[in-house]
C-alpha cells in the first residue's frame, strides 16, 4: 500500500535523464506514524533540493520481510541513497532536514 503510493510519487518525478538521477530507498514497517512522517519528510526534502531529479522507492518490510536481511536494514525508518554511490544511509523519521541533507551529501556536514 505504502509502496504503491510512493511509486506513484516516483513515477511523476523524473524530468532529467537517468544519468544524474537520485535513487532513494526508504524502508518502513507498516503505515505507522513514523513511516508516514518519514515519507512526507523525504518527499518534501527532495522536492525542495533535487528539483524532480529523483526517485523514491518506499519498501514496507511487513510486506517484504526478506529484504531486511538482504539489504541489512535494522533501524526503521532507513533511507538508503543507492545512487549516486557510494551508498549512504539516513535513519530516523527524517524530521531534521539539515541532517538529511548532510547524510545525502547535498550539503557539507
Amino acid at each position: 500500500m505504502v509502496k504503491s503510493n510512493a511509486m506513484a510519487h516516483a513515477a511523476g518525478a523524473h524530468t532529467n535523464g537517468d544519468s544524474g538521477r537520485w535513487e532513494l530507498d526508504l524502508y518502513v514497517v507498516g503505515a505507522t506514524v513514523l513511516s508516514l512522517r518519514a515519507i512526507a519528510n523525504i518527499e518534501q526534502i527532495c522536492h525542495s533540493n533535487l528539483a524532480g531529479n529523483y526517485r523514491i522507492e518506499v519498501i514496507d518490510l511487513d510486506v517484504h520481510p526478506e529484504m531486511a536481511i538482504e539489504n541489512n536494514i535494522s533501524a526503521i525508518p532507513t533511507l538508503v541513497r543507492r545512487s549516486p554511490g557510494p551508498p549512504r544511509r539516513v535513519i530516523g523519521d527524517l524530521s531534521d532536514a539539515t541532517k538529511v541533507l548532510q547524510g545525502l551529501e547535498l550539503i557539507e556536514a
Partner: peptide
C-alpha cells in the same frame, strides 16, 4: 547485522523494528 556508523546519519526518531523483522524471518 552491519551498523555502518560512518556512512549513516541520524535524523529524528527511529526504532530497531528492522532487526526484529530479520530475527523473526
Amino acid at each position: 547485522v552491519r551498523l555502518d556508523g560512518v556512512n549513516t546519519t541520524e535524523s529524528g526518531a527511529f526504532n530497531l523494528e528492522g532487526l526484529f523483522i530479520r530475527i523473526a524471518t
